[in-house]
Amino acid sequence: MLIQTHDLTMQFGQVTAVSALSIDVSTGVTGLVGANGAGKSTLLKILLGLLPATKGSAHVLGLDVTTDGPAIRELVGYMPEHDCLPPDVSATEFVVHMGRMSGLPTTAARERAADILRHVGLYEERYRPMGGYSTGMRQRVKLAQALVHDPSLVLLDEPTNGLDPAGRDDMLALIQRIGTEFGISVIVTSHLLGELERVCDGLVVIDGGRLLRHSTTASVTAQTPMVTVEVDGEPTALQARLADAGVAARVDGKLLTVDVGDDTAYDLVRDVVAELDLGLVRLERQRHHMTEIFSSPGPRDD
């Protein structure tokens, strides 16, 4: 188990940032979703052993956050939400230094820094002072410094913040690669549910420091027996034929959403499309959007 918390509570005076949170997170990419001020950043700091929790316990990689903070921080990478790059050093200098600060010998730190900057997609510009970098490049350097010591787990706090749509896609693709190709587990926070569903294996939704929902993305999104069919031509005829065969379908503009009770429905769609001589453009499994989680919240008492 990657992360385990039990009855974790964090209070700052009157304010409760995290409230009786009990979660188990396994390896892979896990999204930590919540509105601003939901307690995401506080939770990350507790997991790093930087903030002592008021109550409850938490274990990261099997290590207790209250007693094994330094050992955890050796094996975990952290990318903060805010800007954290000095403008007068180059990305290379900075990432090498941060590698050494994680305990890597200088030569290893240099090699790792060069490798990881390439992986995050920073090339010639890495020798220039970071003051002149775009937001996208800065986010990449922040990510690189979190990965330079080859951690077992990285905590990414709002990595897509401030990025344009293309930059978001790049960053999300990168996060997915970290989880799959690099084999490093990822906890990634966001206040946008939608963008995380594409890359996360699991999902924790918190609100006001409380757990709203805890699930794997697969269980949320995979079980829906819906298929979107796009055809070259009018979908209404197709809908009528499918209805005759006892398969419910709904026309949605040029798209047809089909309930597929079992696998034979796929064959039926294919056969009918062929019979009607329509061009089949797309046949796509429909996933529930995670936004629906928010519209069906779990127990809350505020």
């Binding site: 790093l48 330094p70 050992a71 921080r73 952290y78 903060p80 805010h82 954290c84 000095p86």
Partner: peptide, 18 residues
């Protein structure tokens, strides 16, 4: 002040150094 102004300090404290 550099580490404070550019908020680099949290990066140090999220590493093993106390």
């Amino acid at each position: 002040s550099r580490d404070l102004r550019f908020r680099v300090a949290p990066l140090y404290f999220s590493r093993p150094l106390s």
